[in-house]
Design a binder for these strands. Sequence first.
DNA 1: GGAACCATTGCACACGCTTGCAAGAGCGTA
DNA 2: TACGCTCTTGCAAGCGTGTGCAATGGTTCC
Lengths: 338, 338
Amino acid sequence: MGRQVVNRKIFVSAKEVAHRAGVSRSAVSRTFTPGASVSEETRRRVVEAAEALGYHVNHLARGLMRNESGIVCLIVSELDTPYRASLIRALTRQLQSASKVAMLINTDRSDNSVDQALRQAISYRADASIILSGMPDKSITELCVKSGQRLVLINRDEQRDGALRINLHDREAARRAFIAFLRAGCRSFAFANSDVGTPSLMAREEGFRAAGREHGFEITIERYGPTRYQSGVVLAQRLLTREARPDAIFCANDLLACGLMDTARHQFRLTVPDDLCIIGFDDIEQSSWSSYNLTTFSQPVDRIAEEAVSWLAQPILSDENSCKLEAQLVWRGSVRGG
Amino acid sequence: MGRQVVNRKIFVSAKEVAHRAGVSRSAVSRTFTPGASVSEETRRRVVEAAEALGYHVNHLARGLMRNESGIVCLIVSELDTPYRASLIRALTRQLQSASKVAMLINTDRSDNSVDQALRQAISYRADASIILSGMPDKSITELCVKSGQRLVLINRDEQRDGALRINLHDREAARRAFIAFLRAGCRSFAFANSDVGTPSLMAREEGFRAAGREHGFEITIERYGPTRYQSGVVLAQRLLTREARPDAIFCANDLLACGLMDTARHQFRLTVPDDLCIIGFDDIEQSSWSSYNLTTFSQPVDRIAEEAVSWLAQPILSDENSCKLEAQLVWRGSVRGG
DNA sequence: GGAACCATTGCACACGCTTGCAAGAGCGTA
DNA sequence: TACGCTCTTGCAAGCGTGTGCAATGGTTCC
């Protein structure tokens, strides 16, 4: 009947375990500290007592002492996007293998929320932060680095002292996309981009345009909205109603490509790849679905996660903090003559 | 040239802020504790010093003192699945609005890893854990509850004392799916399920079969693999090669439905909805893409997240810890005569 | 002017843990 | 027996906070 305030948590502490096992608190602590000096007999008794009481080392207190929380913050917006989600999955896996734990911070809200997220990371004394979306203010990243917190930037191309930058060879990939179109016999090229202007997206655009120029072709460029399916729909409507309709479209992103392809087929009655060749980027799961069967570049998410986590794990910072990975071309059916 | 060990973190503490502001450490603490008694003048000086030094309250230490870490664990496997990803997105949003932070634990690995995840949650003295995948052992959930940690089970139908269970009216939804098929003129019904046997999936199967029985129809049931696209492909191959080919298939899941629909169209040359009506479940983003245009039931992810977080936030546990929400039927083009 | 009250502030303890240090135990050797 | 060595163990300090308690100073009221 009583209003019971449950706020009161009552976890069992090392003291209680020590009491039950008939040893000192230090012995308990050492039992759960790899490499510490404890006799086999003591360890046995401590483990038994801990088991019986349901004891778990308090990582908050341990982090306070060791000055190492084991927490790594993942800072991301729109995390339900297929590519983002699979990257998060790979990262959490790798982090857990390295005995770290991921703290997920959603920056969907406002623009400065990446800064807020980093402050959060500092408050929890995270060992590191991995930024998948947006770009924080320079002052705050400097504070992170100065405080000894590691920083990883994935597909953010900006320079930040002391941070690890992981990027893809976007320009080279774009060049290969162009060559693929050319070999397929295409003669009118377009690039479908979002208007968010992320460096990696712009690099793809630039690389594609440059490759076109080298071969004497002018590339039609259209930009609209966020990098989502619905933007692809709009981009298709803009590109496919032009007087000189492109027969090859490189999309900044698979989501754009899906929206564009659906619209090309269902609204404009075009056949892919006969009337129109399409290449995307990311190799999200949907690209392999038979409705799309999209030729695209795969992001090596496992490699990215591996690079990030192994950099975090090493005790010594190397001088070179930039890592460029290759995006592999996945041949499917949206380009003629794969 | 020196091997510089960077392990050493050097965050600024309240003591330093106090020194710079010329006040006691308590004053600093009170400045950052809502509702504490500090004069306007002191607060101003403290805030200024904190700003200058880049001070952030140590949430580890605060959590230790307050016995409330602010951490909520999300325990999930296969988080790159569209439905899971959008649920996680909604949850992180809501948690952040409630000044909590999400710790993401990936349980892809082994079977007992949900138990491991909960131990992790206990170690970090999480205020609560939200379980989206799998089911932990009873002993460990009891330990959580006994320790005063909140527990939320989403779409896990098992009873656990002290935990909040959030579920959908799966059986009722399945019944409505059957009625929709019946009204569309279908006469041969099938249910396409995965073989993982999650209670909510089984409830859909059971509800669909029961509705069929009531109307004098026997339902064909096929189960295969995980709840993913590729399983839908296999299920289509099994169901559509039967002598009595179904003209209505209710899929346990949108991913299954997408795989099944693609296969029905591209491999069996069937037209949806003329030859075959399909209904899915979850309303993932892809279902609204024009290639699928799938009639399905929407999971109210925002409502789910809201329910979960508001239950965590309230200081007093109510007696009734079960919450059933309705899945809304989203009419699209995969059933005749919507 | 004195009493009563209030807001503010500093002191010191507590939270649960790790770890340096010194002491104790056990043992082999001279 | 005395000595030196190794392994184990307890003590106590300290990590960065929050907060009860008492002291201080200022204001109001009689």
